[in-house]
Nucleic acid binder design. Structure first.
Length: 757
DNA sequence: GCCAACGTTGGC
DNA sequence: GCCAACGTTGGC
């Protein structure tokens, strides 16, 4: 076994570092640099830097910025021109105008001053008779011949573990491409098997112009060898003549019908039957999530553990965690998790739930992040996702729309972002914020929500509540008239304006919405309206009407046909304007996903008088669901169908005081309310004066609105002493009422159980 | 090969 | 502590 000495180890490290360092790349001209980046996954990326420091990460960008230079034959990965004659033509003919860019001569590839003529360069290594003239090469009549050589002879060196893959490719002879074909010209295996495996030997590749190519790249070498443009140290030896095939199988030499001379491939017997079996298999198990091992190798326990680790990792990140997601699993890790966690840290997490309105919308094209994007004419410095597209549940806090106000340089017209937070007076809710929204209490066994609960987080959470609650109890009515977005996406416009309405500095600077006196109502994302003229309009004056359980006339019921009114919207009341938002069929995915976190109700309570008259069908529930989806629900309430069949209304925001509350409507529109899997007792005041069945949209909305005025009883801290800094775990009194008015922290029963009570 | 954007870092 | 800048990486 060969052991590296310290010098070789240092050199190897240097080589490794060099692969991430900028190297001069005179092929493109003086001042140009090139860098190879090897990703964690093993993928190689190549970047170029102009003399002015502009970095190009793709050939497209390179070409775009050098429109006057023909880079069609520039091999981006290797950094060389595939056809030397073309390269020389470009480089040697600056006066022809092809290279001249008066506007930016320093950026020009292959400018006169930067790249001397290959022919006249001192130390020209072209030693063949043809090297003094370009004619044969230009005409393409001469077969490729070694026209370049290493200035410094190479010496066989011991193999290094670095760069094994390309070396093996060379050592084993030419590898076929996907079609089983091999390059027509390959260097001697004797040479490649030793030299390309020796990263500790990095002799310079000397170009004709006398400049040295940094040859840390195996790809460069392979290309040069492939093109016959360089020679190995044994170039003078007859053993080092490029192996050439006239045609036929490159491995056994047999003729292959249909293969012309000069074209090489592998015969069927020599061609690999199939792709080699991967020794390491990553399986994609979800959006952005991968697991190691084949399906058969991943048992349920492993999946569970990996899922737990995934969320363990997520909990460490300062993000706004999705309400459902963080409820899964505990945060304990076993020893096996450590390595995987280390890997996980190296991977990026897609900060998108892919379900919220922000995730589903398109780039606004107006925020600072969009303006930074190259497609919007930006310089790509920020490289951030559109602010309006930042996930409401998982985005980094500082990227959210209201976190970035107008700054210098932002346009004064058009959308200017949500802006700075309003002055406190404008944001102040009608009652103390602490009473309006409370943090969820910590319950026994609940480890999901309270980590990092420092003051800063509290502030952020409050701000989040601000963000997610588009309306406040100002005692005013708001009329929204939201212009359709430029791309015609109603939802975008609605969401954008919904956000903007509360956070923009320009309360009246934008004519897309106005404020009038109306009872506030927290508009959910789905609560946007489309006017017949195509504009998105919203009139949020339905608080009173929706809340009127005893309003004159029968509450709007979903009729047997499920028909809507003439304008395609369910009739709620005269002062409610509802516009279709999502008329698609209930997404199965949604049902499935929400189902995972749906509390399991083991006991059914119903206000129906007796169970013998249960009537109705699943179709009735579906019609009710469809109507609910077309109407305005209190913020973040979502209706889904689940097994039973059962229509469930869930509060999707974990920040809501109703996060743990579920309204279930069963066949016959019998319903029940559960809080943290516990049924709300029939004696609860919430049931008073309420119909026994929720057969209409207005009844459902009214109940949800009433629920939003409540909060989950925080219980009382247990009697068991807790060490300092340990979270206080709450327990409930035996007869806890579960839901209390939002102004109260706990019900009477739990209050009586307080230690000092 | 290219784009999108996540996550870190250095300057302020 | 904030944030502009950008290295870096995942996905297509």
């Amino acid at each position: 076994m060969y052991c590296f000495n310290s010098e070789e180890m240092d050199m190897s490290r240097n080589i490794s570092r060099r692969r991430h360092a900028w190297l001069d790349w005179p092929v493109l001209g003086a001042g140009w640099k090139r860098k190879e980046v090897i990703r964690w996954s093993g993928v190689h990326d190549v970047h170029y830097m102009s003399p002015r420091g502009h970095v190009f990460r793709s050939k497209l960008k390179l070409v775009k910025s050098n429109k006057h230079t023909d880079l069609r034959k520039f091999h981006y990965a290797s950094g060389l021109f595939l056809d030397e004659s073309d390269a020389m033509k470009d480089i040697e003919c600056p006066d022809g105008g092809a290279l001249v860019d008066p506007s930016d001569p320093s950026e020009r590839i292959g400018s006169v001053t930067s790249m001397p003529s290959w022919n006249s360069a001192p130390g020209d290594f072209c030693e063949t008779p043809h090297s003094s003239t370009q004619t044969p090469q230009r005409r393409g009549s001469s077969p490729p011949r070694p026209s370049q050589t290493f200035r410094n002879p190479l010496h066989p060196t011991k193999a290094s573990p670095l760069g094994l893959s390309p070396a093996r490719q060379s050592a084993d002879g030419p590898l076929p491409n996907l079609l089983g074909r091999v390059p027509p010209q390959t260097p001697s295996p004797t040479f490649t098997s030793i030299q390309l495996l020796a990263p500790t030997r990095r002799p310079d590749i000397t170009m004709r112009n006398g400049s040295s190519l940094p040859n840390g790249s195996v790809a460069v070498k392979n290309l040069l060898l492939h093109q016959g443009r360089i020679e190995c140290s044994m170039a003078r030896s007859t053993d080092c003549q490029p192996r050439r095939h006239v045609g036929g199988c490159a491995k056994c030499g047999s003729d292959i019908p249909g293969i012309e001379a000069g074209e090489e491939t592998l015969c069927p017997s020599c061609r690999p039957d199939k792709k080699p079996k991967q020794r390491i298999v990553f399986r994609k198990v979800g959006q952005g999530r991968w697991v190691l091992g084949r399906t058969s190798e991943v048992d349920g326990m492993t999946q569970q553990r990996r899922k737990r680790k995934y969320w363990t990792m997520q909990k460490k990140r300062p993000s706004l965690q999705d309400a459902h997601d963080s409820d899964t699993g505990d945060c304990f890790k076993d020893e096996d998790d450590i390595d995987d966690d280390e890997q996980s840290r190296n991977r990026r997490h897609r900060r998108a739930c892919l379900r919220c309105a922000a995730c589903l919308r398109k780039d606004c094209g107006k925020c600072d992040f969009c303006m930074d994007k190259p497609k919007f004419g930006g310089s790509n410095k920020k490289r951030q996702k559109c602010r309006m597209r930042q996930c409401q549940n998982q985005a980094m806090w500082h990227l959210l729309p209201h976190q970035k106000g107008r700054r210098k340089g932002m346009p004064s017209t058009g959308w200017v972002g949500p802006g700075r937070r309003r002055k406190a007076s404008r944001l102040k809710p009608s009652r103390p914020r602490s009473k309006r929204k409370r943090r969820r209490p910590i319950w026994e066994g609940d480890f999901t929500d309270e980590e990092g609960g420092d003051d800063g987080d509290k502030v952020k959470e409050e701000d989040l509540n601000v963000k997610k609650s588009y309306g406040y109890n100002h005692g005013k009515t708001r009329n929204y008239s939201l212009k359709k977005d430029e791309d015609g996406d109603d939802l975008e416009g609605a969401f954008e304006a919904a956000l903007t309405s509360d956070f923009s500095d320009q309360d009246n600077g934008d004519d897309t919405f106005v404020f009038e006196n109306v009872e506030p109502y927290e508009l959910s994302i789905q609560g946007c309206f489309t006017a017949p003229n195509g504009d998105v309009e919203m009139v949020a004056s339905f608080q009173s009407s929706l809340n009127s359980r005893d309003q004159t006339g029968e509450p709007l019921a979903v009729d047997g046909t499920g028909e809507l009114s003439s304008n395609g919207i369910p009739q709620l009341s005269d002062d409610v304007v509802v516009v279709r938002v999502d008329v698609g069929a209930p997404a199965e995915d949604d049902v499935t996903e929400v189902d995972e976190v749906t509390p399991v109700i083991t006991q059914i309570f119903s206000l129906a008088e007796g169970t013998q008259d249960i009537q109705g069908s699943e179709a009735d529930l579906l019609q009710l669901l469809e109507s609910l989806r077309r109407t305005v629900l209190p913020v973040h309430w979502v209706g889904v169908m689940s097994r039973g069949p059962m229509l469930q209304l869930l509060q999707c925001s974990k920040r809501s005081t109703m996060a743990d509350t579920t309204l279930q409507i069963e066949l016959g529109f019998l319903y029940q309310i559960s809080v943290q899997n516990q049924p709300l007792l029939l004696t609860h005041p919430l049931y008073e004066g309420r119909p026994s069945r929720l057969s209409s949209v207005s009844q459902v909305v009214a109940l949800l609105l009433d629920l939003e005025r409540l909060a989950v009883c925080q219980g009382h801290p247990g009697l068991a002493p807790r060490p300092d800094r340990e979270p206080v775990l709450c327990v409930r009194a035996a007869a806890c009422q579960l839901l209390v008015p939002a102004s109260q922290e706990r019900c009477d029963k739990c209050r009586d159980s307080l230690p000092d009570a």
